[in-house]
Design a binder for these strands. Structure first.
Lengths: 136, 136
DNA sequence: CTGCGTTGCTAAGAATAGCACGCAAAAAAA
DNA sequence: TTTTTTTGCGTGCTATTCTTAGCAACGCAG
């Protein structure tokens, strides 16, 4: 299997967000044992969102990129913050959640008060404005 | 700076992590058009991290759970912060990303690249939007 | 000892993310 | 016009996530 027809491509690394590969599994296992919970108890605590079998694979490092939905459920059971698990899974850089060092001045008008609907309307209008102009 | 407290807050079901189903596709399409980029130009801009074919399916709502890795790449191309796409994809609750209480009401989509004229046009349009619409 | 329940774990499969390839239509060039 | 390029989008296909059953080992009554 895994027979490539032909890939002359230099096998580009997708340059991922970041990621320690296997440490997540051990962390999840430690968290569970620290809470004194069994695999099935965790499954029950997540309201069947994470099966005990899948959690086992997760802890043994057989899953490389668990869905954020799973991480969120587990973060709720073990009390750790969701961000921490996301970071361990390689979905977030160590301090990516609150950069804020960029984008300043132009946002000076009322965008802080935008509702989601207004945001989308503005975006569509901007798309219309620029529909013929490649920037720069 | 007057504070608009009359934001129509959409009720949310406390069942799932979050539940905007298909809104992500339209948002991504709007962002791309607003930048004046084609599907293949975005693929190129992400350094082949997101194929044009997949981006098409993404914009048409055929993909339900895109990987955060994809969202990260797209957030880099369109200037929108990573958090925003994660939230639209249903991976984050509207105020989950920042535990420090720092409220970064983003909605700063392509604002970094706005020209002065575009900013003025947007401001006018926003004024128009808000003058004609009662709060739902 | 023989059930009976719980533990972690695995095998096999269903479901889906994501990509390479290619096509029809629109746009641009000739 | 015709030809070429670019556009978005559909079609297989692979890799991976996640699920449903089930297994072997353990402890504890009876």
């Amino acid at each position: 299997m895994a027979r490539r027809s032909s890939r002359p491509r230099p096998a580009r690394e997708p340059s991922e967000v970041v990621g320690p590969p296997n440490e997540l599994g051990g962390l999840l296992a430690d968290l569970r044992v620290a809470k004194g919970l069994s695999l099935r108890q965790v499954e029950e605590a997540t309201d069947k969102a994470v099966s005990n079998a899948y959690l086992s694979q997760l802890e043994k490092g057989k899953i490389q990129k668990p869905s954020p939905h799973v991480l969120h459920s587990l973060a709720a059971v073990y009390v750790v913050p969701y961000e921490a698990l996301m970071e361990k899974a390689g979905y977030l850089l160590p301090s990516e959640g609150n950069a804020g060092g960029r984008r300043r001045r132009l946002a000076a008008f009322a965008i802080d008060d935008l509702t989601a609907e207004e945001e989308e309307e503005l975006l569509k209008y901007l798309a219309f404005l620029r529909s013929g102009k490649p920037s720069s």
